[in-house]
Computed example of a mutant assay.
Amino acid sequence: MEFTEFLLLQFLAHLLADYFFQTNKMAHQKNTLGFKSRLLPLHILIVFACSWLLSFQIEFFVGAGIIAILHYIIDGFKATITTHKTLWKYAFFADQILHLVVLVAVSCLFASYHGLQPLWDIPFSANGIAIVIAYLCCLKPANIVIKEVFRSSQIDVAIAKQEKAEILDGADELPNAGKLIGILERTLALTFILIGQYQAVGFLIAAKSILRYKDTDTLKTEYVLIGTMLSFGIAVVLGILAGVL
Rank of each mutant, 00 (worst) to 15 (best):
I167V: 14
I74P: 01
I210F: 10
F61C: 01
L7C: 00
F77T: 13
D172E: 12
N24M: 07
Q197R: 09
N31E: 14
I183S: 06
K78M: 09
A158S: 08
F124Q: 07
Y135N: 07
N24T: 09
V236A: 09
P123Y: 04
R151F: 10
Q96E: 08
A134R: 11
Q199C: 12
L219D: 08
C137A: 15
I205D: 06
F124T: 10
L33D: 14
I122C: 06
S112E: 15
L184D: 15
A49C: 03
Y72A: 12
L45S: 13
A177D: 14
T228D: 12
I97G: 02
T228A: 10
A142E: 00
L230M: 04
E222Q: 15
Q154P: 03
R186C: 13
Q199I: 09
H28L: 11
G243D: 05
L219R: 05
F192W: 01
T32L: 12
A200Y: 09
F48G: 10
I131Q: 05
I58R: 03
I44F: 06
T216W: 02
I97N: 00
C108K: 05
L98A: 12
H28I: 11
G115R: 01
Y90D: 00
D95C: 05
K89V: 10
Y72T: 09
G196P: 02
F35P: 09
L33W: 01
Q117I: 12
D121V: 14
Y135T: 04
F203D: 11
S55A: 07
L245T: 14
A235Y: 01
Y213E: 11
S231T: 13
S112A: 15
N127V: 11
I58H: 03
I69E: 05
K208M: 07
T191E: 02
K179D: 14
M229F: 03
I195Y: 06
I81F: 01
I81G: 00
A111E: 02
I226Q: 10
E222D: 07
L9N: 08
P41M: 13
D156W: 06
A134S: 12
K164V: 07
V157M: 09
T32S: 15
K164L: 12
L15V: 04
I58V: 13
L168I: 09
L103G: 01
V47W: 01
